[in-house]
Simulated assay, not measured.
Amino acid sequence: MIVGEILPDIPVVNVLVIVVATGFIWLGSGWLEESAEHLSAYYGLPAVVQGSVVVAVGSSFPELSSVVFTALAGTFNMGVGAIVGSAIFNILVIPALSGISSDGHLETNRTIVYKEAQFYMIAVSALIVTFALAVIYVPVPDGPALAGRLTRPLALLPLLLYGLYIFIQWQDVSDHEAADATNEISISRKWGQLSASLIVILIAVEQLVGSVESLSHTFGIPEFLAGVTIIAAATSLPDMIVSVRAAKADKGITSLGNVLGSNTFDLLVAIPIGVLIVGSVTIDFAVAVPMLGVLTLATVLLFTILRTDLLITDVEAYMLLFAYGLFVVWILAETIGATHFIKGA
């Protein structure tokens, strides 16, 4: 950690670094949104592709960075926790805030519901299957009972599925009749702005992960829990900003497409890339699957709301926020051991 070599490694400093890093993530996400929007318009991409691929991949860069840094630091469970926690935040909170921010309600369409949402459900299932295969075929003899090694060949499975997703999006682009491109913007400048935003986000996330890791060691916070709360909330900031701004501009398709496309990228690309970089990582199936189960329930809830009249009303938005509140309560109960008390352990 760059800052750690200059400032003392104490809790107050780590908290300050987390706050400052989150601010820079917010700054980088603003640049990213602006440049991605102009580039998508210049190249004539459909709104759903703009949201689910271009903007989604860019705004998912913090999650991808967190996985890479945690994998290199040997704390991969923290990275997986960040991905899953961010995905739950994206599915429940961001559509809710986008719906509340829009003019009355957030409109969607059948493409979002039947292609993006359903493919995302497949992505969640594919990741669970990949983790299960790691436990079955590459168990960890000296680790927890349900621990397995996620190897590079297994990591290729979700990547291949994402390749199918890109192919489907490419078909949409080939069938789309784009409007005439505007020459009022400098393409080279926008590409430079996009690159600068990714660099800012990359450095900020590296500092964020290092500070959270230090705090987790200081206070004995489990790696997965630290990832699913602190890192997940901070790295979800670009997705939230992009989607809420799109909703305010009456671009509901782009807003929801960013959420679903970002989550699909996180699950099928971000986690596998971390594995490909370090070779293999240990996955605790008993810890990861309950969180993925919550993510599945959250996805089903969002799918049901989207399919109802193809829009998100204010009432439905508050339902999503309430569901996230229940998730936070469950996380806190797990942290203080209340769930073990209920089980009689």
Rank of each mutant, 00 (worst) to 15 (best):
Y43P: 06
G210V: 06
I277K: 04
V49H: 02
S60L: 06
T282G: 04
L310H: 06
P8K: 08
A134F: 03
M1G: 14
M1E: 05
A333V: 00
T70N: 06
L276T: 00
I128D: 03
S174W: 02
G337V: 14
R110V: 03
A178V: 05
P144R: 10
G220C: 08
V13R: 01
F303S: 03
Q207P: 05
S29M: 00
P11H: 12
A333S: 15
L97A: 11
S174C: 01
P139R: 01
L292D: 06
I6Y: 11
V294C: 08
V57N: 07
G274T: 01
I230K: 03
F167R: 13
P238N: 10
P62F: 01
A232K: 04
R152V: 07
P139K: 00
V68S: 05
T304C: 04
A47H: 11
T308V: 07
P11G: 12
T111S: 13
G104Q: 06
I277L: 15
G28D: 07
F322Y: 12
I6E: 02
A317S: 15
G85N: 12
V67A: 14
A317E: 08
I112L: 13
W170H: 13
V242I: 13
I88H: 10
I88E: 08
M78W: 11
L16Q: 03
V13W: 02
D180N: 07
G261P: 02
V67R: 08
I91K: 00
Y137M: 11
N109Y: 05
Q207C: 10
G163I: 07
T308N: 14
S195Y: 05
M319I: 15
A196N: 02
V53I: 15
T235A: 13
I166G: 07
Y324G: 05
V140E: 14
N258L: 08
S52H: 10
A126G: 09
V19E: 08
A56E: 12
A179N: 14
I88T: 13
A134V: 01
G344W: 11
I10L: 12
V138R: 09
V140W: 04
G257R: 12
V269K: 04
S280N: 08
L267K: 02
P95M: 07
D309H: 09
F341G: 01
Q207E: 14
A47E: 15
I199M: 14
